[in-house]
Design a protein around this nucleic acid. Structure first.
Length: 473
RNA sequence: GGCGGCGUACCCAAGUGGUUAAGGGAGCAGUCUGCAAAACUGUCAUUCAGCGGUUCGAAUCCGCUCGCCGCCUCCA
């Protein structure tokens, strides 16, 4: 059973073979920190978080680097607007991003470089490109000579001549060719600037990632990821710069996650239909959002909306309800070790699904198959229920660990939901008491009124042998 | 115009050559309940946008048609 990965370089699913046996080096483009991160960033981070976790689970020693682009026009613009230094903006949104990632249960990558920590490497890289004839200075800027790199377009499948004819040009008289892109930009007064052999200035966007990859992962590494929108020009340019400079293949596997759409349209800053992670978290739990993101394959587009998110919430609830039930009816299943061999057989399906280009949706499907199975076992009062349940719980533990889901105690999950209700717990308890009194008096009309009132506020009552419980709809 | 992707039930969504097309949501029927809720059981696509082709065999491969989307400009 080998890992297969869809590689944008060939548009094919390929067997994954790392450069160095047992080790994986991967790089994922992180955010440009000029604003709060949105659900699209969350999708990328969560998708590659699962890639990271699965690779580790397979036994690889993984070095995962995700950068922060902390020098950029947009950061400068925002800084100017607020009358503060760029670095202040960058710092603020790096903190915000880190918090959002933590909320979403995204593991910390091995390295989280900031672009500005690698300026020296960028300058060295640009010099190298200039020496080799791949770059040229022009009026304080330095550009990459796209036509000098013969393989330009190999990632995005574009043809240089087609690009040129269809170019919605950004006219820059300093360029030899409209396709050439900036490696180094001269700075205007007040902008962040570094001294360099080409004059005082700052790096272009693409060169940052190349420099950070080269510094932290080496000239050639295994996996490079990012959103689909980065394929061109960003990743194409990274390849061009890096391979032109080193003469060696850059990343071997290029993975790209699909977009998050809102009302069928791509969510993006330029369209202005963005939803930031924090606002999403006001409506849905982090687990619900993560479950939503992982319920489809990472390359497919997904639709963010009340329908899909409510479904994710229903799934999470179904999961924790069953765990709660096992906890109540067969608590010893949690403290008994599962049979190793049986567990291994059961969890092989998780590996198989994730080995198929990280098919998280299938894993989630498997989880719910087990949920139904667990409920059936509980209903049946089978003699060996405990043994079967330990396997199922073991399965959940494995699936949950690699997906970053299903790891809470059910009480904590439901407590989280209950926190969203407008009534106080005391008030709810009082109403439940009132209803139960009515029920004892066979005053079912009043009892049902109370239940309906609560339902309107999103509170669902359940009468169980242990008394009346409430949950949130 | 160039390049890439998608179209699976009421909705979301796996499946990418081979037994009865995962899973979730919604619906319907039953068990349970004062009635509900939750849970369980049963039911819910002879069919995978359409039309051809390859094959013993296709949702899965190939071609065409229709529809949708993305990239080609900063963007996860």
């Amino acid at each position: 059973m080998t890992l297969k990965i869809y590689n944008t370089l060939n548009n094919k699913k390929e067997e994954f073979i790392p450069i160095k046996d047992g080790e994986v080096k991967m790089y994922v483009c992180g955010p440009t920190v000029y604003d709060l991160s949105h659900i699209g960033h969350a999708r990328s981070a969560v998708s590659f978080d699962v890639v990271f976790r699965h690779l580790k689970r397979l036994g690889y020693k993984v070095t995962y680097t995700r950068n922060y682009t902390d020098v950029d026009d947009k950061i400068i613009n925002r800084a100017n607007k607020e009358g503060v230094q760029s670095i202040e903006i960058a710092n603020r949104f790096i903190l915000a991003f880190d918090k959002d990632m933590a909320d979403l249960g995204v593991e910390l990558p091995t390295h989280r470089p900031r672009a500005t920590e690698t300026i020296e490497e960028m300058i060295a890289l640009i010099e190298k490109l200039t020496d080799k004839g791949f770059a040229y200075s022009a009026g304080g800027d330095v550009f990459f000579r796209v036509r000098a790199f013969k393989e330009y377009g190999k990632l995005s499948g574009k043809n240089i001549d087609d690009l040129e004819s269809g170019a919605r040009v950004e006219v820059d008289g300093k360029k030899e060719d409209p396709l050439d892109f900036a490696l180094w930009k001269s700075s205007k007064p007040g902008e962040p600037a570094w001294d360099s052999p080409f004059g005082s200035g700052r790096p272009g966007w693409h060169i940052e990632c190349s420099a950070m990859c080269l510094q932290l992962l080496g000239e050639s590494f295994d996996i490079h990821g990012g959103g689909k929108d980065l394929i061109f020009p960003h990743h194409e340019n990274e390849i061009a710069q890096s391979e032109a400079a080193t003469g060696k293949p850059f990343a071997r596997y290029w993975l790209h996650n699909g977009f998050v759409n809102i009302e069928k349209e791509k969510m993006s800053k330029s369209l202005g239909n963005i939803l930031n992670i924090r606002d999403a978290l006001k409506d849905y739990s982090p687990e619900c959002i993560r479950l939503f993101l992982l319920s489809s394959h990472y390359r497919s587009p997904i639709e963010y909306g009340p329908g899909t998110l409510k479904e994710a919430e229903a799934k999470a609830e179904r999961f924790y309800r069953t765990i709660e039930r096992i906890k109540k009816e067969v608590p010893s299943a949690f403290t008994t070790a599962p049979d190793k061999e049986l567990l291994r057989d059961a969890t092989a399906a998780i590996t198989a699904a994730l080995n198929n280009d990280f098919n998280t949706a299938e894993v989630i499907g498997l989880v719910f198959k087990k949920i139904a199975e667990a409920n059936r076992i509980l209903d049946s009062n089978k003699a060996d229920a405990k043994k079967d349940l330990t396997i199922i719980l073991g399965f959940f533990k494995e699936a949950g660990a690699v997906l970053g889901l299903f790891q809470k105690e059910p009480e904590d999950y439901f407590k989280l939901l209950k926190g969203r209700v407008s009534l106080s717990e005391e008030e709810i308890e009082r109403l439940i008491q009132e209803r139960n009194t009515a029920r004892e008096e066979k005053n079912f009309k009043r009892a049902d009124e109370v239940r309906d009132e609560l339902k309107e506020k999103g509170i669902i009552l359940e009468d169980t042998p242990e008394g009346t419980k409430w949950t949130v709809s």
